[in-house]
Design a protein around this nucleic acid. Sequence first.
DNA 1: CACAGTTTGTGAAACTTTTCACCAGCGATT
DNA 2: AATCGCTGGTGAAAAGTTTCACAAACTGTG
Lengths: 247, 247
Amino acid sequence: MTRVSESTVRRLSHYDRVLEEVQAEGKRMISSHRLAEREGITSAQVRKDLSTFGSFGRRGLGYNVERLREEIRAILGLDRRWKVGLVGAGNIGSALIAYRGFEKQGFDIVAVFDRDSARIGQKLGRHVIQDIAVLPAAARENPFDIGVVATPIRAAQDVANALVAAGVRGILNFAPRKLFVPAHVALSTVDMAMEFEGLSFAITQSVARRRGRAAAAVPGPKPGRARGPASRNAGRRSGGRTRRAGT
Amino acid sequence: MTRVSESTVRRLSHYDRVLEEVQAEGKRMISSHRLAEREGITSAQVRKDLSTFGSFGRRGLGYNVERLREEIRAILGLDRRWKVGLVGAGNIGSALIAYRGFEKQGFDIVAVFDRDSARIGQKLGRHVIQDIAVLPAAARENPFDIGVVATPIRAAQDVANALVAAGVRGILNFAPRKLFVPAHVALSTVDMAMEFEGLSFAITQSVARRRGRAAAAVPGPKPGRARGPASRNAGRRSGGRTRRAGT
DNA sequence: CACAGTTTGTGAAACTTTTCACCAGCGATT
DNA sequence: AATCGCTGGTGAAAAGTTTCACAAACTGTG
């Protein structure tokens, strides 16, 4: 089996969501075309993605909703439950605890740690916040698979190291910085500020484009090379960050 | 100038973070190599990314940290402040309000809406929670650029529609489903459950690979390419959701 | 059974993104 | 002034991802 791209995995999660809905609607079969439509992608993409892992459909009929969903969940490793340890009982940590959506997908938070002595011993949801110092011992006693880093930026790498030492196999990082972890540990970073910045760029860009449209009929923006230091913002091409329109 | 890829934009945000740090360390110049090292990517990537927008370095010397940072922030549209309207005063909404990190980057939450009459009128941070029904009027009176959807899944599309109607230019969506918005509105989705699922896949996968090593013909180290330069080690996949461009 | 209508799975083509490799510009040194 | 060591910019190659397009597999119908 070839290497699976990150985008494929992401789409598999999407398919799972769609299938859940479709299942709730009582449909028994679904075609790649209808599945794609709901996600705003092409049917070829859906078929390609699935074909990476096997052959789950029937020509002329489509995919059996229930079966496909099970296959996808097995591929994603969601046919089991995962134990999660959370480090950082601040805003993000609290939001994660309060948000029950993960449990539904099979992720159970089993321990919460923080460094702030004011918080240690208090309860967060069903969990008593423990001193980060006892993480190694706590993890030995009651191991977890995935660690969540929800600490301030400067503590993040140390916490990640501690989690790796404690034997986690994956880390979900909410601190806005690049973490370095050994190759056998999976890492995923969620940076909300960066999402805002992406929007900022897309909006700014679309304004520049609109503004440039009439004026940018200007000669060749590509003479020798000497693009003036202040002359960014020449003719930007279409493309566009945004998503498709719909409905 | 060619279309700018989403990954380039994401990296620009990263560069900004690194430059901020480097600036704090008092360094005046930085080379593409050192900048890349901090992000776990190649120096060619850094130079390519930057060259999309102009020519900011000096051969033999590198980039002026302060100047480059200003350029990047201008490119990203961070040389101004953005007004943000938040819909949904639940867990995620509260976490966003409590997290001051956005303000630092130029994003000010200026209004908060919810549908739950128990919450309407209460304060969340500095903001009084308003009835979602008054969103159109409130947005007319005090417009905002970006809308955040932090509602339950089934309300998400309606809220997005309302935000579009209210004239926002970008939407940040935390609901775990695909939203459809017109092409002139930028959309970015953060799905935390999906991040967990990505980890689940990666972990499951690595187990399968380890197990199958002897038997199956697994990808294995490619004979062709040298195993990257020294530091290419640790950091693998970094977070990143959101989407590509639509039609 | 033959035929029409669907829909999958998949090579190959098209397109996008990353990496390579090298020239040219820079300060420092002699 | 000539040379050295370093570094940015960039065209071209390589690698990766998405889309196209079509044979093959399936059901239903006459």
